[in-house]
Nucleic acid binder design. Sequence first.
DNA 1: GTCTATATTACGATAGAC
DNA 2: GTCTATCGTAATATAGAC
Lengths: 196, 196
Amino acid sequence: MTTARRDTYTPETLLSVAVRVFNERGYDGTSMEHLSKAAGISKSSIYHHVAGKEELLRRAVSRALDGLFAILDEPGAQRGRAVERVEYVTRRTVEVLIAELPYVTLLLRVRGNTATERWAMERRREFDHRVAELLGAAAADGDLRSDVDIRLATRLLFGMINSLVEWYRPHPDQAERDQLAETVAHLAFDGLRKAR
Amino acid sequence: MTTARRDTYTPETLLSVAVRVFNERGYDGTSMEHLSKAAGISKSSIYHHVAGKEELLRRAVSRALDGLFAILDEPGAQRGRAVERVEYVTRRTVEVLIAELPYVTLLLRVRGNTATERWAMERRREFDHRVAELLGAAAADGDLRSDVDIRLATRLLFGMINSLVEWYRPHPDQAERDQLAETVAHLAFDGLRKAR
DNA sequence: GTCTATATTACGATAGAC
DNA sequence: GTCTATCGTAATATAGAC
């Protein structure tokens, strides 16, 4: 082994700094100079670790997308009635959003000006589509209220969940985080689920 | 009277072009060159109508904020039980958001990099605060479920409403627009309001 | 009111020393 | 791995002709 702890940047540690600044100023509003100041190294040193600004964006949104898509492969999203699977995905989406907050925040804000941004938007739409299918299956099972359009409900549900990135700030208390996911699912589905 | 119809830009008509481009590319991602191409006039001609890029932003977010604050002065937001007032404000906020869609969209996306952006964010927080107070009054009246934190509910409600700007596209059918406001209020309050 | 031409600054990225 | 110096481009904005 070499020295126990290196006090230099890796692409990953540099990424965490960059994502914070991207979220504060917006991706387009952040210059390499801004990143350089925030990281405490010169502009050219950043290029030693990553190819450029867009690579930092790609790494960040990839991390967010990987976290979201992994939810769909979990047992809770694959077994049981559709309404229970979509409720599970709702809770887990909130949890992943909180666990990877800065990365998902950045993902939700890309505008499509670069190839990387357009790729991220397409992958995100794919995730939304997968959840919309689940919600559609739950409706077909007769487990959702019939007086609400399913596409509209999907969009409002995602709108509610995704809005968390605009105000939620990391909390050390694990119980508090579980509570949040429960409240969101509770609020969403007590409005959605057919009375019985 | 002069000629019935001038085929030249006013600050207002130029604004509608600029806001569209701002929403497509993001404010920071839009250059005066982009605006010039979209408007079909040269960069320097734009400066004949407005002082610069930031003035276009200020005019846009002002229009959005004026529309939102006007809701709070309407009779429906001032009379009756708090729970009915907040439901009225919810419906009207959806309607104003749709009526002034590109302007509100831009307002909801400002990041705070300029003085104009920080002013807009502060005014928007003020509006949110006013609605949160209404929701608090409704809770004090005992008209809302007691198992949901009121601050969290306010944020999720706004998150749901504001997410409309991410997917809603103008629709000529007035009934469709009324329907949307009803559905949002329905979904939100059938989850929020105490069973009776 | 619109244009071309340009001043000036900021940006992303590279060269090359240490 | 980090630096200073710099390149080439694109940005906001202005000058001044028509």
